[in-house]
Design a protein around this nucleic acid. Sequence first.
RNA 1: GCGCGGUUAGCUCAGUUGGUAGAGCAGCUCGUUUACACCGAGAAGGUCGGGAGUUCAAGUCUCUCACCGCGCACCA
Length: 738
Amino acid sequence: MSEQDQQQTVPEVFLKPYNPAEHEDKLYKLWEDSGYFNPDVCIEKGVTKADAEPFSMVLPPPNVTGTLHMGHAAMLAIEDILTRYNRMRGKRTLWIPGTDSAALATQSKVEGIIYKKEKKRRDEIGREELLRRIETFAEESKETIIGQTKKMGSSLDWSRYAFTMDEKRYHAVTEAFIRMYNDGLIYRGARSVNWDPAMQTTVSDDEVKYEERNSPFYYFKYGPFTIGTVRPETKFGDKYVVMHPDDERYKQYSHGQKIEVEWINGPITATIIKDKAADPEMGSGVMTITPWHSAVDFEIAQRHGLEKEQIIDERGILLPIAGEFAGQHIKKARDAIVEKMRAKGLIEKVDENYTHKVATNERGGGMIEPQIKEQWFVDVNKEFTMGHSEIPGVQEGDTVTLKLLMRKAVENGGVSIFPERFERVYYNWIDNLHDWCLSRQIWYGHRIPAWFKDGEVKVQAESPGEGWVQDPDTLDTWFSSGLWTLSTLGWPEITDDFKTYHPTTVLETGYDILFFWVARMILMSTYLVGQVPFQNAYLHGLVRDEKGKKMSKSLGNIIDPLDMIEKYGADATRLSLIVGAAPGNDMPLSEDKVRAYKKFANKIWNISRFVLSNIADANWAIEPVFSARDREILDTLHSHVSEVSADIEKFNLYLGAEKAYHYVWHELADKVLEESKEILNGEDTQARYARQCVLRECLTTSLKTLHPFMPFVTEAIWQEMPPHLKKRELLMIEKWPV
RNA sequence: GCGCGGUUAGCUCAGUUGGUAGAGCAGCUCGUUUACACCGAGAAGGUCGGGAGUUCAAGUCUCUCACCGCGCACCA
């Protein structure tokens, strides 16, 4: 066959190197228009059996605070591989897209933008106007995020798209809240909460980030005792002095005894409290407490029924109790207070090299000031009688707590966490869990379905009538996120989707939101429907730069997934985020790595060109007579495919991807193709035909095996293949090779 | 304080049940043979953090030490 003849038998497009930009958007449209992202369409068109085993997964909804980063890209790559693989396996495969309002983070971001531009704060803009602006911002974000998600090749069923604050999700949130309230699992109470004076809201324990700081540590004389503190500005109301009951040094003092001490603004009467919370090893073993501004002190005060007094207001300003310092901001007041203490001779010593951790609001706020506030809480320790249960190890009628449900769901294998070591991290978190503070004093988010009138409270969706005022607070964003597997499938209605796809098969997300999200979905789902939300939780790591550093704007080491897609293609970007990324481990990424996989895409392109041009003249009606070597090649191929399948089944995508890469390049291209040249050019027509059959099999099987990892280049080739070489028009719905 | 990772080629990292060490990038030699120079062939490069143990056999299992990183709790 002459060179010219060969070229005529192969589509012209193969004569140039593979150019991802030329194909990707067109291919995505082809897939999307086909409707096959939707499992219902797959059944309608006979691609999937109506009674096939379901495979379902929710996309962790990206926050509508901006654009996608490499972490999102990695998540999309992993989840799309699982989705495409299972779809090709013939399962009823559903991957549900969505976005998250991320109430606190989004409001904080928009407030920041407005303040920068207009120098206006929340109160000057007003609730309605601010909400309008946040919603506009969120809408734009959603568009951007959806566009970027498609660029990655994500085979999400867009017909089921959900937003955490849309109408259906609102119903789920309201229903969940009311049910939990009626069961006594949500209560309203005055408790110590994490207050953010900058954002003017409470935040949950998990949203508090501790930062190491160096601050002077003061030793003050408190009557006959010495007490230590880094926060003199909270000490005005300290009238309880606490020591361990067994501390020999203080055995002459008895619990409840009153003593007179000279303090910041004059003499006060202090009461001795004996409590095991005081650590005799720590400093002098004696401490005073500030129940209003410390969670630990609050607990001590609760135990002994002590008085609690507010010292600092919600903006960080000292109250009248501070005497001459009242009205000052705590930041400014501290030095002045210390100066006064020094003048009064109440300072024993100062340790200038003291490091401690300062609580800050991780979601864009400032330093946390504990306050006692009337808030809504989820009681994680309250016992109740379990209703319907499909959770392993939990029977209907059992006495349980939310904590117990969360533990049992994992302990008895209802939910398997990968990698397994995170199960221990999960238990550790449950053991330390306190009641979950649900209410936020921000405007963007789900309003709490509670109504007040003359000191009465009613919890219900609609207003009880004239004069009832709805709680102005909104819910922690993780409350609606916790319902995600339920609410995206139609709950509280028991829809067909819910019956078919819940519990979902896999939940894939970063290990950094194990507590925020994974645990809370388990809580919500086990309590509300008696099912686990997902059978498997697959946790990926953080994408880091080539030196293992966290990507950040300030370090200037951010690699933008869209840049990578534009330069090297989505396939290369995907593969670079998969190979070498073991579950639960952080993954290093460099542009070189992405570039390397672009070359691989081109290699596949050229392999296809070679094979297609060399098998174009075959008459496929004849039964081939395989040589021993032909059989060996096919055996190697098939055992390769089963290895890759096993790796995907076990969520070891990084191994499967590397094997696929290695096989195609170093086995198929370097060995099989090279040695086939002689046979293809030889005179032995029987041997030549047999090898053509082998090559055809190797190519189609390799394309199928690679498809979940590199959907675009493999589909592009598939679309160029002569129709008689393929069963289905789209590679995306071809059957996975067995 | 409790717990979890990591320490493997110059760099960044893989290495699933223990059986002659792998990838990407960088570097070296040769090769423009019609699938591909976004390539091929070949060579070089590692006492797998230190030490001890189990085993016929340990990067892989056990113990121990060191250093780096992370989570949680405490933080008067």
